[in-house]
Design a binder for these strands. Structure first.
Lengths: 302, 302
DNA sequence: TTATGCAGTGCGTTTATTGCAGCGTTTGAT
DNA sequence: ATCAAACGCTGCAATAAACGCACTGCATAA
């Protein structure tokens, strides 16, 4: 929408942290951009950016202003989609910030299923740890978040919560393979490979380890669950994952896994949510519904 | 705010019902305005106005669009006021659509009291019957509505409700003067002067008259309560009004009045409200608080 | 039928926006 | 201490956008 260029530019500057760098990605000169900002500040009567040596930063007036224009921008997208709906074409874009666990199996299947019905809808899928996912909602770079054990902030509005019991993952020829359930201490007899600190799985494990006298033999830490899972396939190591991130054994027999007794490690919760008080674009709202239904079918709703 | 000119223009066209007349009040030529509209329609991919012989009218896409841009426009005012607040100056504008009853005494006193504290805040006060008041909220031409017995629509969000017992008004030398309470039939023995149909007082009276065998001798109908009240001062006629619209007898002894038994005429309700889901400008929200407090002190809250 | 009021178009003019070159400043590395 | 790099900002000319005027075609009301 043409009339929104100025505010889109300002949004970009706020994100980029400097006028010059924002100008570059917007493919205009810094002078033009600079003058747009000065003009807006002049109209408002107050500056919205602090000028620092290395760029600019929003001041408190700017925070208010940018918060507002981001609302405007994403509302306009919703309105456009709504109008397009009237004309019969179902279009839109859904942007999702999510934990690693949903990336390998759950989300691809969900998106594929949704796009069968609504081929006009495009998707953006971004890996964010539980803190960053909520930041993405706040600055409108994501419409939805699917996060495990999030650090709940006030701006996060839960759409659905499902239980996720921690599972140990190992190779099919591992001594633990075939067991129905495991105690945490069973796992700790083997080398373990763990996700790094910011992730929910690690968080849960730490809770469990506090009540355990056994010290884990952590041979590998990684921020990639993909890597952890594959590594656990080799060596006699044990990795950890939540059900939604586990492969379907009917189609993939390279792994074995078993749930860990909840006496040892508490049940985790996977949250689906959005920014509080934001009206989502139709496409995002419908996709959220579809995801919520799928989750509710498969897992225990809290 | 400069970047909003296009949408302000479109809002104006939607209100005016024709491009030419809107152009006139905007002090530009119709061609320029016309081209702005065509440009927006081009961007949206669909027309937002139906072209009629006598002007233009919003189509359904236009309804969605205009609803949205009106939100944007009034939100921006709120943001500006919020930013001005940061800079120390308390500014803003409050626009009120209200029933006649609150015009003569209540609202002037409330606004005066409020402006003592916040002299930077300006007011717009518009007389609207109970249907039109809510329309004013919907199209953002009013921030607040104070209406007696409104036709509740879905978009109306009640902030406070207070009881209002119907009173008969007459001159101090009227035979009815001095009575503590009246039955409706007492009043009907005299000529009555009534507000016209769209008003809440008339509505209540009609309800009362349905259960009465007496037919009223309606000598005057008027849409001005001021006129009705003054006329009742002369002749031996009886008029009707709710407490909030009655003068303070300590300062004005040109009138006498008495409540009408609730067996005959049900208690009416005065609503204070706003448009649902709208975040009011700070000034409007604070004034609404102040009004609500004053009403709650004086009348029974429902 | 004519007269009126309307939205839309072509074209020259005015106004706003942009890009270029350059200034003064701060910061981090040499 | 010095130098290079990155930053926001300004003067001026070039460019693009918005505008007003004159005019067209169309639909209703008189």
């Amino acid at each position: 929408m043409r009339y929104m260029t100025t505010i889109r530019f300002i949004d970009a500057v706020a994100r980029a942290g400097s006028i010059r760098s924002a100008a570059e990605e917007l493919a205009i000169t810094s002078t033009a951009l600079n003058r747009r900002i000065l003009a807006v500040e002049d109209e408002l009567g107050v500056p919205i950016f602090e000028r620092l040596a290395r760029g600019v930063r929003l001041n408190s007036a700017g925070e208010i202003f940018v918060q507002h224009i981001r609302d405007q921008i994403s509302d306009m997208e919703r309105v456009r989609a709504q109008i397009a709906d009237l004309a019969g074409e179902r279009r839109g874009h859904v942007s999702i910030a999510c934990s690693q666990a949903v990336l390998p199996f759950f989300l691809p299947a969900q998106i594929e299923r949704y796009r069968v019905e609504h081929s006009g809808v495009t998707f953006g899928v971004f890996l964010r740890d539980r803190a960053a996912a909520e930041a993405s909602l706040a600055d409108h770079s994501a419409d939805l978040a699917i996060v495990f054990e999030p650090i709940r902030m006030a701006e996060f509005q839960t759409l659905l919560r499902v239980r996720q019991q921690l599972h140990a993952v190992f190779s099919p020829d591992h001594p633990l393979a075939g067991r129905e359930t495991l105690r945490l201490r069973d796992c700790l007899e083997y080398p373990v490979v763990l996700p790094t600190a910011p992730y929910g799985v690690r968080h849960l494990l730490e809770l469990g380890l506090q009540n355990s006298s056994h010290a884990p033999k952590v041979v590998i830490e990684s921020d990639s669950f993909e890597f952890l899972r594959r590594y656990a396939g080799s060596e006699k190591a044990v990795s950890f994952q939540i059900p939604i991130g586990l492969p379907d054994l009917r189609h993939d027999n390279r792994y074995a896994f078993a749930p860990i007794d909840t006496q040892d490690v508490p049940l985790g919760i996977l949250y689906t949510g959005q920014l509080r008080n934001r009206t989502l674009p139709v496409a995002a709202a419908k996709f959220a519904d579809s995801v919520a239904t799928a989750l509710a079918e498969r897992f225990d709703v809290v």
